[in-house]
Design a binder for these strands. Structure first.
Lengths: 221, 221
DNA sequence: TGTACATCAGTGAACGCGCGTTCACTGATGTAC
DNA sequence: TGTACATCAGTGAACGCGCGTTCACTGATGTAC
């Protein structure tokens, strides 16, 4: 691993070109979705021949994997930064929606329809649990300051299940109520986001922001 | 439109072949997702030449559109039948999950990542509101028998928003609380389903059925 | 500072493949008198 | 019932395209003495 500042010009150039390839790849994905990603098309857009890209990525699959990794990293960093700035659960929720709306294809790369046969690399699961830990932190803080998200009707059965299956909490010391709150946060907001991004509310005349805010209020109460 | 029983043998044969093409199309989609659908591959599988299929579908796009229509119809019929058999909201929720798990690609055709540039035909929105009406019926009945899904903390702001944007209810006489309940049902269950189908819970060691049941209990209380 | 060599970016040709779609045509099935 | 004609399913060849990927090669950039 090269130490920053000690890169040779060649290394710098390589990194720069890899970055540009990825940038063009995102543009293509934005235009035609991930299945429409083509190495040849990227090369043409950069004024290079197709095979040239193989100096930078071993295959189309490796490029896509890298984009998925970047998408996860982007989300983890965005959520992590917001939490670091003192955002509470509701703030993280707003951050999540802003992140999703900022680039829906980036969202879809993580949470969209999975490609049959494709398996994400192992290291992204580490990033995924990094995100979960941030949520658990926020949920734990929220739990200290507020009542349960269901107004005193905590779901004992769910909390028992969550308490017994804590692999996903990665040793996080959150209480059962906080586990539950973090999970509800995650699943409910993704429900709204995926329906909104796919346009399922537009035909209904509803304002997705209003629905989203409502769930945030409910989760924070 | 041909009257049933008055079809000529040729019409019958046409209908039969269209059905077989669609059946093979579903198999292909199950194996490689919707982007991997190929008319030539279907033809080969049926022992025919590629161009032969153009007697039955004008283009690949028309075939996909037809599959989407069928997916919507399947969901509307399944939910409608359950409601007709006296299922309450929780029952419809279980029906929804069973339908989704029965064929995830069928679910994705409706609720998965949209293909940029593709627009679903108008008539599917009619089917979509048919589904919503079924939900509104059930939510209205539930409202008469139970308390609000948030235990007496109804979200006045959300209900006001919903009451002011009732295009999606298509003239349904549901009360504001029922509108809200139906929408929460829809968005929360889809959040769980989309995460479950994409495998986002498998790495966490959680049982999606448990989470789903928890939301159903909450929505029905 | 200058020369000899190694490294590496990028090219162009080629391979093999599959795609959607069109077209002119053959042969079977149905219809009309 | 039998003949003449129209309808229609399916074929095979072809078009034009783009894809991922390999390979041998050129030319520029960097390194070592």
């Amino acid at each position: 691993m090269a130490v920053a500042g000690k890169e040779t010009p060649r290394e710098r150039y390589r990194a720069q070109l890899r970055a540009e390839i990825k940038a063009r790849a995102w543009e293509q994905i934005a235009a035609a979705g991930a299945p429409g990603l083509s190495l040849n098309a990227i090369a043409k857009q950069m004024g290079m021949s197709g095979p040239a890209l193989y100096r930078y990525f071993a295959s189309r699959d490796e490029l896509i994997t890298e984009l998925i990794r970047d998408a996860y990293r982007s989300l983890a960093d965005t959520i992590g930064t917001a939490a670091g700035s003192g955002a509470d659960l509701a703030g993280l929720g707003r951050t999540l929606r802003a992140w999703a709306l900022d680039d829906r294809q980036r969202y879809y790369l993580i949470y969209g329809t999975p490609v049959p046969g494709y398996h994400a690399p192992d290291d992204v699961t580490a990033i995924a649990s990094e995100i979960m830990e941030t949520l658990l932190d926020a949920a734990q803080s929220a739990g200290a300051a507020a009542e349960s998200p269901d107004d005193g009707h905590p779901d004992a059965r769910l909390e028992a299940h969550l308490a017994q299956h804590r692999q996903w909490t990665a040793g996080h010391p959150a209480e059962p109520a906080a586990l539950r709150r973090a999970l509800l946060f995650w699943t409910r907001l993704h429900g709204l986001l995926s329906l909104e991004l796919a346009g399922h509310f537009t035909g209904m005349g509803l304002d997705p922001a209003e629905l989203y805010d409502s769930e945030l209020r409910h989760l924070s109460q």
